[in-house]
Structures are given as C-alpha cells and as structure tokens.
Amino acid sequence: MFINLYNRKFTIFLAAVSDDMKDIRQELAEVLVNAGIGIADGKSLPSAQAKAAIQAADCSVHILGDEDIYTLGAIGYNSPAGEQFRIARKLCSEQFKMFVWCPYADTAARKSYINNIRRDIVENTVYSDKPSSIIFVEDIRNIMNVKQSENRRHVPTDIFFLYNELDNDTASGICNMLRDFLGVQKLGISMSSDVDYNAFISEQLADSKVGIVYFNYAGDWAVSFARQIWKDTGGSSSQTPLAVFGNSDHATQDDLAVLKDFMECNVDDQLRIPLDIKVFLDKQLQK
C-alpha cells in the first residue's frame, strides 16, 4: 500500500488560548474534527484538572497568542493558556508530543516573543508557523501516525551472526564453535526469501552485544549488506558495535577498505575467524 490511511485514532488536548486567538482556536477545532482527530477541550479547565486531561490525551496543541503568557515572570503567567503550556512542556520529557502553532507574527514585538519560544524548543515539541490550519493539522496527523515497530521474535544474545546463504556451511561451523562458550543467534540472508530482514535485523541487533557480518564467497554482498545495516541500526550512535569478518582465501583487506571508517573489518584464515570474533566481543565488553 503506497498511501497512508492514517487509521490510528488519537486524542489531542486543545489548550486554552488568549482572547485574541479565540476565533483561530475555533477554526482549528473544526479542522481537527474533520481530520478525524479526537479533541480534549482545555478551554475552561482549572489547573489541576487540566494536568490530568493533558496526561490522558495523546498530544496537545497550543496556539501562541499576542499575550506574552508563556514566559516565566510575565504578566498573565498564571493564565490557563500559560499554565497548560507549561504542564505540557514538562510532559515532553516523557515522550509526550506537544504541538505549538504560531499562525502569524506581524509585529516586531511578537516576532521577538516568538523567537524566544523557538529558542527554547525542547525534544518532542513541534513548532509550526504555517498560516494554514489544514497544513498544520496534516503535520499533526503525519507525526502522530508514525508506524511503531512490530514486536518480532528476537532474543537477547552475545553475538548476532549474519551471513549470506551461499556461505551457509562455513558460517555454521563458526557458529558451532562460538556456541560452546557464547550465546549466538545466526541469520542467513536468502535472496529469494519474503522475510523483512531489514526490520528484524534492526531489532535483534539492539538485543545483541555485537553484530557480526561474515562472508566466505559473498564478499561483494557483505560490504553492501554491512553498510546498509550500519545505517539502519543507527550508525555511530548505535549501542551495538558491528564488525565484518571474511575468509582471506576469497578476499583481501583492500576489499573492505570502504568499511574501515565505520566499523571493524578484517579478513583472516577461516580457522582463526571464531577467535577474531571472540577478541572483538571481549574488546567491546571492556569499553
């Protein structure tokens, strides 16, 4: 399916606004309803109930008005709009999504005030200055419909061992040797399989101490494969280090040169590869 049906139902907390934004708030509420998004109305809620309502919603939306009510120490600091803004902002640290909308900034004072807000944007806060409420709601629906990864069967292990099905025999030999003293999960990649390898590998790698890409004959494949999973699993920010080991009978160190900036890679005698893997694992565990 090439189109997103946006079938995830969610509720948005529509925060109170200052007087100048009442009409825009009403317009936004109608657009949200048309987009199939549930609304928790925060217009006239006391602060204690507002907090509970925000927590109960999936996300919140705040329209920045003319009043400087969101900045600590300003007049109107205790207004419902300001309080709800701050409650939601605190929740952002707990993966709560907060949408801040500023449909226009027509004066220098307002621009300056908006700049202050934009400078203080924190994680999980989405700021938008799109003048159209429809574009803004499209963004909300898109962000709230990001597909969550499915839970697949993966188990915690020491080594996640990946190879091409062409090298099945030698790969099994290495795994058998390693299994005597380490936990090993192996996965042979088959070109004719329907398995969504990409997603499965990402999740299993996250549950492994190291990831090993091994090759005997399939050297060309291993280089492309290792680069692809390095990218899919977070690259330099990944918690699971990745290494490529190959049989020196069919490849040289130069064949792996394109990988050396990103991960450990080595070609060695087939018999020494299990030991190389063990050394690599130990080195990573020491870090």
Binding site: N164, L166, I189, S190, M191, S192, S193, D194, Y197, N198, A218, D220, W221, S224, F225, R227, Q228, I229
Partner: peptide
C-alpha cells in the same frame, strides 16, 4: 541500489 545489493530484495542471483 545499496538496498538490493544488501540482499533485501528477491532476485535470482546473489550479486
């Protein structure tokens, strides 16, 4: 190109 080279697509040959 990198996606298919990595073997994430169905094809007759390995390379």
């Amino acid at each position: 190109v990198p996606y298919i080279r990595a073997g994430f697509s169905k094809a007759e040959f390995n390379s």
